[in-house]
Write a protein that binds this DNA or RNA. Structure first.
Length: 472
RNA sequence: GCCCCCAUCGUCUAGUGGCCUAGGACACCACCCUUUCAAGGUGGCGGCACGGGUUCGAAUCCCGUUGGGGGUGCCA
């Protein structure tokens, strides 16, 4: 490798939501840029006019920022837009044509398919190579693949050999004159002085073609590193159609950045030691490409969830309250009849921190506090209100009329009632919990009772007693 | 079809010829703790795809088989 400063790039196309696979590739590029003092170039490959849309570009920038790949960081350069370099791509194409390394071809896709069918050999057969065609309507510019073999030295996969006979004369310029990916990508890498390309393995078959282009244009190719693809449970490449791949969606569902970032890094790589949940600083200090795995990795939602729960538990109370806030606010916005009580929220939040996996679960755990009547879950009701629950309920109502109103006393009083029926506390609290919260499971019970106060608690207990009476 | 890549518990991985009776994590199961549910603790289940070599010695090196994946566009 030369002594030139390390320049990496991440080159997504703005054709949809930001993909978790793209996020992993971006992270691998970013961590190396930070680790080695290199530059991370963001290049938006917006040359597919049919599928591009400007809003996706902002989505990419926002998603990267969420992962703390910040446009404000000195290591970050860009974004550059490939579409603005069209002239350079075309100039490179012209140079290849002028030097005899590319030629025009007027065959349509249909004609090529017919010839392939007739000859039994798939792909384009190079039949226009020596026809001396110039540019014109319906003419594409094709690269004249030289004889020999192309050897790709890959930092992850080692030496990969391709016989040039297996590489067809690929298209550089469409018949409308616009440059194609293979060319544009190389010319931009050249212009931006990229010397290490880290991308997904699906690009490995493109690499000999691109390396040939570098040679033909008279520049030494960059180093390559092809990282394994991310796959679904069927072990197929993650796809936007089939799989949940939008990074934004995970963020909106309450996955936290640290967990996502840490998890993504462990798909194909592992930090030293027995710990895989580690600080970003450790990852930055340890990551190397030769330690990256070569086989595809399954993007496992369960493990992501486990990481997320772990990261939530690692938060301080303040961090957790801050992180949960948008989800609480969203719930109140959707439930205008509910009344916010900041102090109650602050009391409950710490009780939730070990009980949720995503931040989006927060509102459902505490909503009963802020609405007039809890929404009774039928299944919970049926299970909790079996005998002797009605009698327990009645006894608790009268006992709670005079108990000192604090969580400890409420617990002791309830326990005492239960014992007269030979019940353990776990059983005794069930009907009370359902009466007050509507649910059989939830956060610890006595703290919210204390918050709700004697009147409201007894009102809810009585409502439950009435409901029992009316269904008998 | 052709080209290329890959192959350690169900999953993500550690392992770079002896430290491996293969380690960790997720998931799963059991027990403990416990006001429900979690969290936490303890323990358990479970793997080097197969067949040949090389070597005193192979999860590690070589070859083959099988299996999986990627590519094969006037998409990127």
């Amino acid at each position: 490798m030369s002594d030139a400063p390390l320049r990496l790039r991440f080159a997504p196309s703005p054709t949809g939501f930001f993909h978790v696979g793209g996020a992993r590739t971006a992270l691998y590029n970013w961590v190396l840029a930070k680790r080695l003092g290199g530059t991370f170039v963001l290049r938006i490959e917006d040359t597919d006019e049919a599928r591009n849309s400007p809003e996706w570009t902002q989505g990419i920038i926002d998603a990267l920022a969420w992962l703390e790949i910040s446009a404000d960081d000195p290591a970050f350069e860009g974004p550059y837009f490939q579409s603005r370099h069209r002239d350079a791509h075309i100039a490179a194409a012209r140079k290849l044509f002028d030097t005899g390394q590319a030629y025009y071809c007027d065959l349509t896709s249909e004609q090529i398919a017919e010839r392939a069918k007739a000859s039994g050999v798939q792909g384009y057969d190079g039949s226009s190579r020596d026809r001396g065609l110039g540019p014109g309507p319906g003419h594409v510019l094709r690269f004249r693949v030289p004889d020999g073999e192309t050897i790709v030295e890959d930092l992850v996969r080692g030496r990969v050999e391709f016989n040039n006979d297996t590489i067809e004369d690929f298209v550089l310029l469409r018949s409308n004159g616009s440059p194609m990916f293979l060319l544009a990508n190389v010319v931009d890498d050249m212009d931006e002085k990229i010397n290490l390309v880290i991308r997904a393995e699906e690009h490995l078959p493109n690499t000999p073609k691109q390396q040939l282009l570098w040679d033909a244009l008279g520049e030494p190719p960059p180093q390559w590193a092809h990282v394994p693809v991310l796959v679904n449970e069927q072990r197929k490449k993650l796809s936007k159609r089939r799989d949940k791949v939008a990074l934004e969606q995970y963020r909106d569902e309450g996955y936290v950045m640290g967990a996502m970032r840490n998890y993504l890094m462990t798909l194909g790589w592992a930090p030293a030691g027995d710990q895989e949940i580690v600080a970003w600083s450790q990852i930055e200090g340890e990551f190397t490409l030769d330690a990256v795995n070569r086989s595809p990795a399954f993007f496992d939602l369960k493990k992501l969830a486990a990481f997320n729960g772990e990261y939530i538990r690692m938060m301080s109370r303040e961090e957790f309250a801050h992180a949960a806030r948008p989800f609480v606010d969203a719930w109140f916005a959707a439930n205008p009849q509910a009344t916010m009580n900041e102090s109650w929220l602050a009391t409950m939040l710490p009780l939730l921190q070990t009980r949720i996996v995503t931040l989006a679960e927060v509102p459902a755990q505490i909503d009963f506090l802020f609405i007039g009547d809890p929404v009774i879950d039928d299944d919970s009701w049926a299970k909790a209100m079996k005998d002797p629950a009605p009698q327990v309920l009645a006894d608790v109502i009268s006992a709670y009329a005079q108990t000192p109103w604090n969580a400890d006393a409420l617990k002791d009083t309830l326990d005492a009632v239960g014992q007269t029926y030979g019940l353990k506390l776990g059983k005794t609290q069930a009907p009370i919990r359902v009466a007050v919260t509507g649910q059989r499971v939830g956060p610890p019970l006595f703290e919210p009772l204390e918050l709700l106060g004697r009147d409201e608690t007894i009102r809810r207990l009585q409502a439950a007693a009435t409901r029992i009476a009316s269904t008998r």
